[in-house]
Design a protein around this nucleic acid. Structure first.
Lengths: 202, 202
DNA sequence: GTCTATAATACGATAGAC
DNA sequence: GTCTATCGTATTATAGAC
């Protein structure tokens, strides 16, 4: 869409990066393993990402940010009631985890843990990905009537609970943390939403 | 306390492991860097941990699990009201993060992201550490009158929100996620606690 | 754009003197 | 128990043919 040189190989490298970062983080992923997973020639890696692993990492973070951001947008469109929409995301994550034998976590969280304190550039890319998701959640909540401040605070809480529950579920190989968190997060949102509804336009 | 050979060096290695895992995960931490940080001789590493990095990693996870577990126990003892106790933990984490320029996250989360899907032994050690914390939170909630099922579900939710908020705060270098999550988590606990109090002994 | 070969370095782990 | 030297191997990155 932007370069017209060899979109296939480049896209496969990004996809493989996203997949491998999800399961073993940034530091734990070798470039050789990455090209093999992507079915891409070794030479192509430095053709598309001449600055090496860090550049590839940053672009994978951007790619994943956009991809999952579209998912947030879609779920709010499908389920206008925000409590239902967000609960669906938690439940969908359970499906993703169980289907992958608890391999497919969140690529942004994984990379954050590895590099937040060793590469300012990659840390900023992680923050940007999270910020994009937070903005989508905020938009979804505002569409349901949430005031600006409440929407921002709730979004941070929702994403925190989701990311943490994914971590605990992966460690335990058990969806309990996601189920438990989904229940309480939904409780909070439904209660807040009722408050927004009672305060109609002034 | 258990071996009486060279407790100092061994303890320093565990402490250095905990510190480095917090900031750069398991895969991102080299054993050379670890011995330097611990001010320990290279030879000592394989003297105390003959099975190498994996054994050291597992023992660091156990060490950190016990250490932070005692912290949970202590905060519930100091603050009998569970909403207050748990809010204190969130706020203390903000202090830890800001004081370390957002380096000192959670060692269990970091290692989980790196190895949950590549080493069954280390994944189990991560799960055991989290389970210990969950048990402490559960105990604190039960002491405040929570029924068994409610305590278990709430504990999973609380720890999920905390771990996720640490991740987001580290990525953003901003305590907002921890503050936002603390507020809603406390709301949930206080509301539940009121329900336990109204249902007195039957 | 692709591919092979390889450079340069860092890694985990071992051996053997002390 | 400590320390140095070192072995393989894996890592990221480059060079140059095609």
């Amino acid at each position: 869409m932007k370069d017209r040189t060899q979109p296939d190989t480049r896209e496969r490298l990004l996809r493989a990066g996203e997949q491998l970062f999800r399961t073993q983080g940034y530091a734990g992923t070798g470039l050789k393993q990455l090209t093999q997973t992507a079915d891409a020639p070794w030479g192509s890696l430095y053709h598309f990402f001449p600055e090496g692993k860090a550049q590839l990492g940053a672009e994978v973070l951007h790619y994943a940010g956009q991809l999952y951001g579209a998912g947030w947008q879609g779920v709010f469109k499908r389920y206008p009631h925000p409590g239902e929409a967000i609960e669906k995301v938690f439940l969908a994550e359970i499906t993703t985890l169980t289907r992958s034998d608890y391999r497919d976590g969140c690529p942004i969280t994984s990379v954050t843990m590895d590099v937040a304190s060793t590469s300012e550039m990659l840390r900023a890319a992680c923050a940007a990905a999270f910020d994009g998701w937070l903005a989508q959640i905020e938009t979804g909540l505002r569409a349901a009537g949430a005031p600006e401040d409440a929407a921002k605070a709730l979004a941070g809480f929702v994403l925190s609970a989701l990311e943490g529950a994914i971590v605990l579920s992966r460690a335990a190989k058990d969806p309990a943390a996601l189920l438990q968190s989904a229940k309480f997060v939904r409780q909070i949102i439904d209660r807040e939403a009722a408050a927004w509804a009672s305060k109609t336009s002034d």
